[in-house]
Simulated scan of single mutants.
Amino acid sequence: MLPGSKGGFELDQRLESESLPVAWLGLCELRIRDERRWPWLLLIPQRPGVEELHELTPLDQAMLSFETNLVSKALKELTDCTKINCAALGNIVRQLHVHVVARNEGDPGWPGPVWGNGAREAYRREDLHQLAEKVRQRL
């Protein structure tokens, strides 16, 4: 879907308020989560009403897999992290979205999950925009 063309799609307000747009990919809008403890990207398929992976068409499933791999590789190269974590949980925000998080041994919460690990720590705005630009360049 092209930027500015919603086609019935509405981004969940929680995703919008805690992240910044980075790029439009073929299926997904790529956003960076405003959480400075971990480089954290979000892939949001631009499909209205979709909550689960199996609700996507087979073509959209393939595209989401491709875009997740593309973004994961770029984040790994950019951060030189120990591990990339990818997940689609949806327990709180039901709209389908995939988390791509760069993890390092010794980061807050390692080796546990990033969810439920203290309060979110926002980036300085210029640092968030700088990281978003680095991700765009890497893609």
Rank of each mutant, 00 (worst) to 15 (best):
A23L: 12
A23Y: 05
A23H: 02
A23I: 01
W24L: 10
W24S: 13
G26C: 09
L27W: 07
C28G: 11
E29G: 10
E29T: 13
R31V: 14
R31W: 10
R31E: 07
I32L: 15
R33G: 13
R33C: 14
R33W: 04
R33V: 15
D34S: 13
R36A: 13
R36E: 15
R37C: 05
W38H: 15
P39N: 12
P39R: 08
W40R: 08
W40E: 05
L41I: 09
L41P: 08
L41H: 07
L42R: 10
L42G: 02
L43E: 02
L43W: 02
L43N: 09
I44R: 05
I44G: 04
R47G: 07
G49H: 09
G49R: 03
H54C: 14
H54F: 15
E55I: 01
E55A: 12
E55P: 02
E55C: 01
L56T: 05
T57R: 03
T57S: 15
P58R: 12
D60A: 10
D60T: 00
M63Q: 15
L64R: 07
S65T: 14
S65P: 01
T68W: 03
N69R: 15
L70C: 10
V71I: 10
V71D: 03
S72G: 15
S72I: 11
S72A: 15
K73W: 09
K73Q: 15
A74Y: 03
L75G: 12
L75Q: 08
L75M: 10
E77D: 13
E77A: 14
L78A: 00
L78S: 04
D80L: 11
C81G: 00
C81M: 00
T82G: 10
T82W: 12
K83T: 03
K83G: 08
I84W: 04
N85Y: 09
A88G: 09
L89R: 09
L89C: 06
G90M: 01
G90L: 00
N91I: 06
N91Y: 04
V93S: 05
V93I: 13
R94P: 00
R94K: 14
R94V: 11
Q95W: 07
L96Y: 05
L96V: 03
L96A: 01
H97N: 06
H97F: 13
V98A: 11
V98M: 12
V100D: 01
V101Y: 03
V101Q: 12
V101M: 10
A102E: 02
A102K: 06
A102C: 03
A102D: 06
A102L: 11
R103M: 07
N104S: 14
N104H: 15
E105S: 04
E105V: 08
G106R: 03
G106Y: 04
G106V: 10
D107A: 13
D107C: 04
D107H: 07
G109D: 12
W110H: 05
P113I: 00
P113C: 02
P113K: 03
V114A: 14
V114G: 10
V114M: 13
W115L: 12
W115Y: 13
W115V: 02
G116M: 05
G116V: 02
G118Q: 12
A119H: 12
R120W: 06
E121K: 12
A122I: 06
Y123G: 07
